[in-house]
Amino acid sequence: MFDYDEPDRDIGIRKKLPIIMCDMEVSAKLDVFVKSRSEYLLLVHGGKRGPNRRYPEPRLVAQAIAAFYQNNLQRKLAGRPILNSQTITGITVIGVTPIFYLLPITTKLVQCVQAGIPPPQPTIVQRFIPPVPDPDAYPSEGLVPLANRVVVVQCFEAFKALVVSLVQCS
Rank of each mutant, 00 (worst) to 15 (best):
E6Q: 08
E6S: 06
R9M: 06
D10G: 03
I13V: 12
I13L: 11
R14T: 04
K16N: 05
L17C: 03
L17T: 00
P18R: 06
P18M: 04
M21F: 12
M21I: 15
M21T: 14
M21P: 05
L30I: 11
L30R: 02
K35W: 01
K35P: 00
K35D: 01
R37G: 03
R37M: 13
S38M: 06
S38I: 01
S38H: 14
E39H: 13
E39M: 15
E39S: 14
L41Q: 15
L41P: 04
L43W: 01
G46I: 11
K48R: 15
K48N: 15
K48S: 15
R49M: 12
P51Q: 14
P51S: 14
P51Y: 13
R53H: 15
R53P: 00
R53V: 06
Y55W: 11
Y55H: 14
Y55M: 10
E57I: 13
P58C: 02
R59I: 05
Q63T: 01
Q63W: 01
A64R: 00
A64Q: 02
A66Q: 02
F68A: 02
F68Y: 08
Y69P: 00
N71C: 01
N71K: 04
N71F: 02
N72L: 08
L73A: 09
Q74D: 09
Q74F: 07
R75M: 03
K76T: 04
A78I: 04
A78Q: 12
P81V: 03
I82F: 04
L83M: 10
L83N: 03
N84E: 08
N84A: 04
S85R: 14
T87C: 04
T87V: 10
T87S: 03
I88P: 00
T92M: 08
T92K: 08
V93A: 06
G95W: 02
V96H: 12
P98D: 05
I99P: 00
F100Y: 04
I105Q: 02
T107N: 10
T107S: 09
K108F: 05
K108S: 09
K108I: 10
L109Y: 15
C112L: 03
C112P: 03
V113P: 04
V113Y: 08
G116N: 11
G116A: 09
G116E: 05
P118K: 14
P118S: 10
P118D: 06
P119L: 01
P120S: 07
Q121N: 13
Q121C: 07
P122R: 12
P122H: 12
P122W: 10
T123V: 15
Q126L: 14
Q126A: 13
F128S: 09
F128G: 03
V132C: 02
D134E: 14
P135Q: 13
P135L: 12
D136S: 10
A137G: 07
Y138H: 11
P139F: 05
S140W: 10
S140I: 06
S140K: 12
E141F: 06
G142K: 11
G142W: 08
G142S: 11
V144K: 14
V144Q: 12
L146S: 13
R149E: 09
R149W: 08
V150R: 15
V153N: 07
C155G: 01
C155H: 11
C155R: 08
F156Q: 05
F159R: 00
F159I: 01
K160Q: 11
V163Q: 11
V163W: 12
L166S: 02
